[in-house]
Structure formats: structure tokens, C-alpha cells
Design a protein around this nucleic acid. Sequence first.
DNA 1: TTCCCCCGTCGAAGCGCTTCGACGTCCCGC
DNA 2: GCGGGACGTCGAAGCGCTTCGACGGGGGAA
Lengths: 337, 337
Amino acid sequence: MVKITDVARHAGVSPSTVSYALSGKRPISEETRRRVEESIRRLGYRPHAGARALASSRSNVLALVVPLRAGIHVPVVMQFAVSVVTAARLHDHDVLLLTQEEGEEGLRRVADTALVDALIVMDVQLHDPRLPLLRALDRPSVLIGFPAAPDGLTCIDLDFEAAGELCVERLAGLGHRVVALVGSPPEVYVRGTAFAQRVVRGFTAAADRNGLASSVHPCEASPAAARRIAERLLREQPALTGVVVHNEPLLEPLIDAFEQLGLRVPADLSVTAICPDELAGNLRVPVTSIAIPSAEVGGRAVDLLMRKLNGTPCPEATLLTPAMTERGSTAPRTLTS
Amino acid sequence: MVKITDVARHAGVSPSTVSYALSGKRPISEETRRRVEESIRRLGYRPHAGARALASSRSNVLALVVPLRAGIHVPVVMQFAVSVVTAARLHDHDVLLLTQEEGEEGLRRVADTALVDALIVMDVQLHDPRLPLLRALDRPSVLIGFPAAPDGLTCIDLDFEAAGELCVERLAGLGHRVVALVGSPPEVYVRGTAFAQRVVRGFTAAADRNGLASSVHPCEASPAAARRIAERLLREQPALTGVVVHNEPLLEPLIDAFEQLGLRVPADLSVTAICPDELAGNLRVPVTSIAIPSAEVGGRAVDLLMRKLNGTPCPEATLLTPAMTERGSTAPRTLTS
DNA sequence: TTCCCCCGTCGAAGCGCTTCGACGTCCCGC
DNA sequence: GCGGGACGTCGAAGCGCTTCGACGGGGGAA
């Protein structure tokens, strides 16, 4: 293994000079820097991560805690993860992958052993048991998602409440008077998943505000469940003409089910969804939707973390404004419908 | 921060004794060990990962390289990742997440900086450019997937060739004489994705061996493409009664397409697939399939890596035997069909 | 009884890097 | 012409841990 002293000798300088040339923490003459860089290339020098971490008390590694719970859409999680890794690399950091299964102990472990400098936590629950720990930890963290009491914690997410509202406003604007929200599986709500509940809140508030008849239906993600919920909606709300779907894998089977029951989208039924663009755009019936901007959220989460690590002030709460992409699954309510 | 000397003082022993008590690399009396453990708990001691890595030249971190290419099924990747993390934790290791985008430079970086002790590489291509590097690296690695020339590398995967064969044998055993393989998108084959090509090989070999008429069709994963491929198959092979699907997201739309064309599964058309059990079992029409045992592969990959790290001999090639689960999407060929 | 070896523990020497204080040199301002 | 910065570099002191060699004491074998 080639080490910093080897580089120093080869370049005819002291090890500390090599270190400063590398880190830029002290001025180094152009000439010396060039010699050092040349030696580094020639010798193929790579600083030892452990030694660096020990001496500088910075590991340049971030922890990313990914959820494995039922009812969350895996591709979205993966996109987050990838965007976090990509963004971290831009800041010369790596990413350690933790599963939620490890729980608080896992967080404490990687923080206390100084394995990581900072943490990103996904799938935050409204009353997440990890919150006190995250507040107490001596390392900065960013939550993807908003708990009920986010004070003292840095959070970022799509504004799901606004997203729920926006879906309803859209339908209301098209003249629809009876709408329904088909959401995630019941357990998602039961355990207090923040973003799911916020969609419900926004949906309900906007429906009330616009004087619409509305209902909310958690739903399992299976074709059979899609069928059942479609039948039930038509039975209970015969005048239904607008549906908001917040359940990725259910989107396609649900539309299939409605169509099999004789409803055409968008002629008889307008549908909007909150889901990744790739999903909404690649269905048999492309769906007007609000994107879940995983890549942007991941990237910005890393940026926030970097600011905290550098001591730069940064906002506690970041809510991304939802944007709706029209894909033709909504239409004005017709009198025949 | 509480360090090993603090523990030593508290327990009335030397730091090295604490270290040995922790690692078990030298005998420590029952009595002393207990005192040390007590002190550790009382003080909340956590060894500093960087210091440990520096002194022992072991970081206890594994690198996991995940693919982001088009045409690979994201949930499968995620399952691998999670099972790798879980298995690694059982061996007291953590997992660093790398994206394929980082390429060879990324592998070299984490290896040369001693950030990781070993590497797991997913989505290996037949002629993967990373192979020479992996061979040259001073850290052990395990590939998930088999390249064309796996010599000198440790590889593990489902035996996709046998899986392809098994699907055909099943159909042949039920009397089907004309079969088709609907595979992954063309680009997957073009870039030489090992597992995809192996399925084709097994499929073709078994079809020939059994004297079946067969055809192979790469296919995009969209409902429209499903529709097109279904129509084309019926046009070109009117006597078709057996289909093997190796394309997760296409499975459901393809069956839909066939049914819309008037074919009932399994009455008119027998379908088998190679895909995760969760997928096959949760379709509207459950499909008889060969599971992709992501969790097992991930776990065993970690085990292999641990053996290599410990110097224990371990097999170069591990091929998992495919197992088919019956779910009712296959039936004997009837004369009317 | 004597010798040897193993058990259990200690002290010290690093692992490879960063960082702090120090020091010479050069240049600017007065 | 001289004091004082800034600049550029060096040496040394750790960062917190593992590990090697050493050593005293006790027990078994001869």
C-alpha cells in the first residue's frame, strides 16, 4: 500500500504538505501542488479511509435508512436510494445502507461508532419512535417525510397535503361533484405513515371546501381488491365521477376494474393519481398525476445534510410544491355521466 | 466520546485486555470479561470504527453494487439489497451502497481506500468490463450472476439455464408442442446480460430436445408491447399453447392481452414464468412460476464473502437449482386447443 | 521436585492520516 | 529602513484501536 509518506518522499515535501495540497486547508504554491499531484498519480496513492476518519473525525459516509414495510412502493424507495447515492458522491461522500429492521439500535450504532457523519431517514411515521433518538444524536440528520412534531429536526418531502388538495381541485374545476380517494393499504394508515395521512387530509379539506361529496378508502394492492373497491364505490356512490388514487400498484388494476364495470376513463370517470411519472405514463391508460419527485427529494436531502455538516444554516422544513402532469385521464363532467 | 482507555480504567485493566475481551482473540478470564462488559455497558462504550479499521485493516464494511439499467426489475434488486444488508449484519458487517454508474473507478476507489473489505457485484454482463478489475483487486468479491468466463471469480446465481429448461419441460410434459419465450427488452440481450441469455439457451435447448416448435421474443415492458407481442404470436404460431415469460412487469399485461384475444389461461394457453413468488402469486391469474430467490442469493453471497475474508475455502461457482411452484396457470393440452 | 508450557494480562508500538504551532521568507506600508 | 503580516512549508503530536512480545503464576508431566 502506498501511503502519504511515500508521496511526500517522492515529491520532496513533508507529509503535511501533501495533506494540505489534497485538502486545500492551507495555501500551497502552485509549483508544489503540481509536483504533489504528479507524485500521487505516479504512485497511485489513495488515502486510507479509516486513517482519515480517525484523524479528522469525519468518515465521509452518510447513513441511509430504507423502509421495508408492507404497502410502500419499492421502486420509489429505490429511486430515493439511488439519488441519494448519486448526490452524496457529488459531495465526496459514500452511503451506508441500513434497513429499518435494525431500528433505533442501528442508528445509534453507526452514529456512535463514527461510522457515518450524518443520517437520512426515510418513511417517517407521524409519531416515529426514532425521533427522540435523532434529536439526541450528536450527528445531523435529515428526514424524508414529516412527523407530527418535526421541531428540531430537518425534514423534506413533497407537500402531500397540497398534492391531495390539488387532485381534488382539478376534479372540482372540471365540474365533478362526487369524488373518492383510493389510498394505500389500511396498515399504512394504522401505523401512522405521515405522507399517506397528509394526502387524506388534503383530499378531505379540498373536497369540503368545494362542497363535494367525498369518501376515502384504504385499499390493498391486489387486482381482487381493486375489483372489490370499484364495485363498492359504484354501489355506494352511484354519482361518482372523480377518483384520486394514491396507491401505485393498484392504479392499473383499479382502472381495469372500472372499465370492466362499464365506466370509460375519462369519459365516465376522471382519474388522477399521486405516483411516479414513469408509472403514470406507462399505463395502458396514461393517468394525469402528481409526480413523486424522488430524485429531487433525495438530492436535496443530501444537500441539506451537507449544509448541516458544514455548519451552514439551512431550513428545518422543506415542502416541495406538487405539480400535476396532464395525461388525458380527466375530463369535464358530462351531464350524461 | 468514551474510549477504550476509559473502559480499561473503569474496569481496572489495561486497554489491550478490553480489546481482547471484545474480540476474543486471546483468552480472558470469566471474571475479567464480566467486569469489562459491565464497564462497557455502564459507560456506553462504542469502539470507533475508523480507529478499528486503521489498526486492524478491516473496515467491516462490504460494498454492494446495484444496477440501474433499464429492463431490470427494481423490486428484485431491492430484495437483493435488503437481504445482503440483513445477512451482513449477522456477520457484524455493514453495507456501502454503490451504483453501477460509478463504474470501475468506484470499485477501485472503495477498495483502494480500504473503505470496504470486500465487494458484491450485481447484474453481471457476459463480458463485463469490471471483471479484470475484480480479479486484480486485493479484496475478495462475489458476483451475483455468471459472466462468460467466471474463472478466478466467485459467482452465485439461480441456474437460469436450468430454469428455462424446466419451464419447457413442464409444458412438454403436459403435451404442448408449440411454445414461445417472451423475454426481457431487447437492450437487455444486446448488452449481454448473462441471466437473460441463459434463460434463452435453456429454453431453446429443452425445446429442441423435446422436439417442440419454439420461438423467442424479447419484449418491452408495456401494455402496448404486450398486446403487440400477443397478436404477433397468435399470427405467427397459431398452434401456440405454451408460453414462458421472463419479464416481470410484462407478465400481467401479457396475460390480459391473451385473454382479450380470446385465449383462456390455462384452458387454451398454459403460462409459466420466471419471476419473484410475490409477483406470480398476486396476479389476477396466479401463474405457475420459478422463483427468483433473491433473499437466498443475497444471503449466500454474503456467506461466501465471509468465507473468503476468513480464508475458508469456498466454491467458485454456486448455481441454485430452480424450483417450480404450481399455481394453476398450466394445463394439459387439449385436442380442441 | 523440576521443567515447561499454557493461561491471563500488560505495555508499547504502530496503523496512516490530519492538524497545530512554529519558522523562514517575502513584501507592503509607514 | 524596519516591523508585521501573509504565505508556504515542516515537524511532531495525536486520533482510538489492535496486536505483538513479554512476563508472572500455576499445573501437569517426567
